[in-house]
């Protein structure tokens, strides 16, 4: 609802020339597991996406988990504009081969345009975005505060992690299997509980998470957050 108002006040020379931002907002749900956008957006698994247009690749200073290739691309002059973002979203690994963004890409041009129109708003004038929490998507699993409050034992987490590292690489490389290093603790805990109760569909992860206790999940989250 509030979003419609944003569309109304946006300058006609920007987002609405690109695509349908309203549809783009729905498409953004694919991104929202890792990225926040809008007022108070924070870095999560991925960097926040405010003021994305015109930003250098790898350019959010307090986000520390860029791949080497992404940082290098930024240093070499890659800036996010319509053309570069369109290419990146179409096939992330084609533009930045070692990107840690574990996303297949969006092949449909119209969908990309709509998404870019949505993203563009938060670059036009992000400080004035009227929504308090535009990315306030309900978490996948509503966990009791005491579960989120468990402080994980990193030594135990390191031992448990040896099981994860058969597939997930400890240097954060993402090749067919997502990178799980450097995630915020809460995101990690929520994701593992989502596998445990089988909201997330992957059978291997359901099996792995299925036999982990709350303390074990917290231990893994603590260990991987610092890796």
């Amino acid at each position: 609802m509030t979003f419609v108002i944003v569309v109304g006040i946006a300058s006609s020379s920007s987002a609405d020339d690109i695509g349908n931002a309203e549809k783009g907002r729905e498409i953004f749900q694919k991104c929202a597991a890792c990225h926040q956008i809008g007022q108070d957006a924070k870095n999560r698994v991925g960097p926040h996406l405010n003021s994305l247009f015109g930003r250098a690749a790898g350019g959010v200073v307090d986000y520390t988990k860029y791949s080497k290739g992404m940082s290098r691309a930024g240093a070499d002059g890659l800036k996010w504009d319509l053309a570069s973002l369109d290419a990146y979203i179409e096939n992330p690994k084609a533009l930045v081969s070692d990107t840690r963004m574990n996303f297949r890409g969006i092949k449909d041009k119209t969908d990309r345009d709509d998404l870019l129109a949505f993203l563009r708003f938060y670059s036009d004038n992000p400080a004035n975005i009227p929504e308090a929490q535009p990315t306030a998507i309900a978490p996948e699993v509503a966990l009791a505060p005491e579960i989120l409050a468990i402080v994980g034992d990193t030594e135990y987490g390191e031992y448990l992690s040896s099981e994860c590292k058969t597939c997930h690489q400890s240097d954060g490389t993402d090749k067919g299997i997502p990178s799980i290093t450097g995630w915020p603790v809460d995101d990690f805990v929520v994701a593992m509980h989502a596998y445990k109760i089988k909201i997330r569909p992957h059978p291997v992860m359901q099996l792995m998470a299925g036999r982990l206790s709350d303390e074990e999940i917290a231990a893994l989250a603590a260990y991987f957050s610092e890796l």
Binding site: K165, T166, C167, H168, Q169, T173, D174, K175, G176, I177
Partner: peptide
């Protein structure tokens, strides 16, 4: 995924 696993293991 199997290719990723190969690289991981």
């Amino acid at each position: 995924e199997s290719i990723g696993w190969y690289s991981g293991i």
